[in-house]
Amino acid sequence: MVITGLRPGNGPRRWNAARRKTTFEDGTGDFRRLPGAGPVRSVGRVIEVRNLSKRYGGTVAVDELSFAVRPGRVTGFLGPNGAGKSTTMRMMLDLDRPTAGRVLIGGRRYRDLPEPLRHVGALLDAGAVHAGRSARHHLLWLARSNRIPAARVREVLELTGLESVAGRRAGGFSLGMSQRLGIAAALLGDPPVLLFDEPVNGLDPEGVLWIRRLMRGMAAEGRTVFVSSHLMGETALAADHLIVIGRGRLLADTTVPEFIEANSRSYVRIRTPQPERMRDVLTEAGIPVRQAADGALEAHGAEAAKVGELAAAGGLTVHEVGTRTASLEEAFMRLTGESVEYRAGGADR
């Protein structure tokens, strides 16, 4: 089966141009549908999580979490498995009741949004479809529940490349097709806010690229896109902003460039039989050095050529001089490492 990819350049726009734009009026909690209005680059706090906590018995899943998600950009929600991402997203949709704190979407609780699918589209668990019901009928009951015209079902099937399998029972869908159906459901109400929980889990590279482009396209239209993941690398490619949590607590709330700047500076790695003298030479030249676990030296803030020249000037033997970049994945592991260790010893969830 061939699934045609969504072209974000014209796909969502073409579809959206025919419809009224959905905009969000900052601060008032008022969603308005203005005919012909362009995307609004609001900096409002569309999703506001305030002191949110969730305990299951004695286990703390989410611990005093506070952050805001703004429109017009993709916000990545990062954390290791079991950090509380899914629990937080379920509380955003009022599926789980917080032990303390609250989530406001456009200034209102989710349950107070009239016809919520027109405000918030969510992909939580792509497998949550009755195995015996066709994709078209799954979308149809969702549409009926929020008084969305049935014609919209065909539009989102087309948008997600599912037209050819729309009449097939969802139980026979591959993981990729299920994810597309989940995304079709999220887009059904043309909502200004989109929540995706681990949307690329189990997808092939083509599917991952498709979802990344879709999310970027939606954010470019001025929508608020909030996407959870436990993969730093993928999130760095898709997101503009990052919320990192571990053990249910906020670890970082930063932009992706800031995160990369702070965590993945490149350095020069040197292997030499004379590490003490090498270290002295570099330190004299004002280059900070640290010794790696395997005995090699890591010089920060200098180019490999400069390090080589200094070694030659000092008459030192070097076996290797090369530039390295700490991967984002390593930076992420470092940031969340403590919480993972703790979790491995304690109960999950």
Binding site: R90, L93, D94, L95, Y110, R111, L113, P116, L117, V120, A122, L124, D125, G127, A128, V129, H130, A131, L142, S145, N146, A185
Partner: peptide
């Protein structure tokens, strides 16, 4: 029961949160 066994209870309650 089918809502719980298929997991559609979550999309159902997301669509109709009351």
């Amino acid at each position: 029961g089918g809502e719980y066994s298929s997991g559609t209870i979550r999309p159902s309650l997301a669509a109709v949160p009351r």
